[in-house]
């Protein structure tokens, strides 16, 4: 289903909600009330499972803790696919640790919604400002962040004019042994990107890429590290925000938005029904979708926000100017095993 002609962002979330057949009435939008804060403080903490970069996650957590002293955030960061596996493993043993979860693989929320593991928490900001594409109609989750998976290169090792402009350019023999990429079995960002690339460019591209002797790392946050360290001058996938953060710290890295389109990764957040700290979880969820928190996320973490009131910092290419691939979590949810298996066959790990 090649549907690049459809206007971006897509209405996939809406579509998937219909497919999931949820007949729940949309919950009432929630705002932060003093009672909620008091109840949250009584619980004292939330456990936040997330796939976002650990340093970014901890800074978001610190911002929350500064805003609501007395509620501490325990950040459990791993790759989205690990987070997903972990929650499944814990829930099947009736271990309910997690309060709020953020994944970079939106398909996970399709799964959790089907399992009935999510609690309806509709933040006021989401109800008021978020486009339907970025929220679940039943109020179970919404796009907390948007991540891109572009190409990037080391500016000391590659001249700008020689840098690849497209995914197709990466197949040039001159890049053999010079590419690093992350793993869809670990990273939700990469799983989503692999799905979109396979759909829009085709598996043959990935099969040929596998022959380029790529260095295989796990997390989508890692390829930018390998690029700046000079271990590999090019990344064929990886997170845009880590590349932006490294660039800001003075590291020699430049981003290329490939001409075929850049994979778009929607990273929703939701509250678990069996959250051990439900009030604190609600407070965190509502807060994290406020314009203020979203702005902090964009400023601190260099991520993209679906909140229309958030300002892109100067010098950052606005989302509207980047050619993006289309996300489709429902299809990802269906194909996940096949994508992983096929990837493993090609890339050997």
């Amino acid at each position: 289903m090649r549907s690049r002609d459809i206007l971006l962002p897509s209405g996939a979330a809406l579509v998937l909600a219909m497919i999931a057949g949820a007949a729940i009435a949309q919950p009432t939008p929630m705002t932060i009330t003093p009672e909620m804060v008091a109840a949250a403080k009584k619980e004292g903490k939330i456990v936040y499972y997330t796939a976002v970069d650990v340093k970014v996650a901890e800074q978001i957590a610190k911002a929350f803790e500064a805003k609501y002293p007395g509620v501490s955030v325990q950040v459990e960061r791993s790759g989205a696919e690990r987070v997903f596996q972990r929650i499944g493993q814990e829930y099947s043993s009736k271990i309910y640790n997690v309060d709020v979860v953020n994944s970079s693989d939106a398909a996970h929320f399709v799964h959790w919604k089907r399992e009935g593991w999510l609690a309806p928490v509709l933040p006021d900001d989401v109800a008021k400002h978020y486009a339907p594409a970025y929220r679940d109609p039943d109020g179970l989750f919404a796009a907390w962040r948007i991540t891109l998976s572009p190409i990037a290169y080391n500016t000391k090792l590659v001249k700008p004019e020689e840098a690849p402009k497209s995914f197709a350019d990466l197949l040039d023999p001159k890049w053999a042994g010079k590419i690093v990429k992350a793993h869809p079995g670990y990273s939700g960002t990469i799983l989503t990107a692999t799905f979109q690339i396979a759909r829009d460019i085709g598996w043959p591209y990935l099969e040929k890429l596998a022959l380029q002797r790529v260095m295989q790392v796990q997390s989508a946050t890692d390829p930018p590290n390998k690029v700046v360290s000079g271990e590999r001058p090019i990344m064929s996938d990886g997170t845009e925000y880590n590349a932006l953060l490294l660039k800001a710290s003075g590291a020699p890295i430049e981003i290329v938005y490939p001409t075929e389109g850049t994979p778009l990764v929607v990273g929703p957040s939701g509250v678990m029904k069996n959250a051990p700290n439900p009030n604190a979880a609600r407070l965190f969820q509502i807060w994290s979708f406020t314009a203020e928190a979203q702005q902090q996320m964009v400023d601190i973490g260099a991520l993209r926000s679906a909140h229309p009131m958030v300002k892109e910092p100067a010098g950052r290419k606005p989302l509207s100017e980047i050619k993006l691939m289309k996300d489709d979590p429902v299809e990802v949810d269906k194909q996940v095993e096949e994508i992983k298996a096929r990837y493993t066959r090609n890339f050997k790990t």
């Binding site: 970069d53 650990v54 340093k55 960061r77 791993s78 790759g79 670990y186 790392v217 796990q218 997390s219 946050t221 890692d222 590290n225 390998k226």
Partner: peptide
């Protein structure tokens, strides 16, 4: 975990 995300400093 930190190694998988490449956080060498930490």
């Amino acid at each position: 975990d930190l190694n998988e995300s490449g956080d060498l400093g930490a």
